[in-house]
């Protein structure tokens, strides 16, 4: 899936299931500011200290594990969601500074800040009046 006129596109397969566990594709917002791109992902139930963010060869991968399910033998009356690790990858074509990537996790929401590389930041050119 390639988004038109965007600098971040979905890298597939974004969610590979292992044989034993289900894996979920989190909903994300991707936004751009003057100096950075940022990605906001809904990963309710994810364990903050186990979240893994990887950026290699222009591909950003987020892996957010959740607590292993303990729902054996539960008698569900309503079941609208399942539980499993979140995983999703994006190809980032914008030049970003990998060393400047930061992440925060609040109330089940992961926010990644991807600062643009110096070379692509809009640069103001001073015009000197003569």
């Amino acid at each position: 899936m390639l988004d038109q006129q965007t600098n971040v596109s979905e890298q597939s397969p974004s969610c590979e299931e292992t044989r034993s566990d289900r894996c979920y594709r989190p909903n994300v917002d991707i936004l751009e500011k003057e100096n950075e791109l940022y990605l906001v992902a809904d990963v309710p139930g994810a364990l903050a200290d186990k979240i893994d963010v990887d950026f290699a060869d222009g591909v950003l991968t987020v892996h957010a594990p959740v607590e292993p399910a303990s729902d054996d033998g539960r008698r569900y009356l309503v079941r609208e969601f399942g539980k499993g690790d979140y995983r999703r990858s994006f190809r980032v074509s914008e030049q970003i500074d990998p060393s400047g990537i930061t992440a925060e996790f609040v109330d089940g929401v992961l926010t990644l800040h991807l600062p643009k590389a110096e070379s692509v930041k809009p640069r103001k050119i001073a015009v000197r009046a003569s």
Binding site: D3, T6, N7, N27, I30, L31, E32, L37, V40, D42
Partner: peptide
């Protein structure tokens, strides 16, 4: 609505 941003993708309810 955040100001000064462009949305490239908006999936979160």
């Amino acid at each position: 609505e955040p100001e000064g941003v462009t949305y490239h993708r908006r999936e979160r309810p």
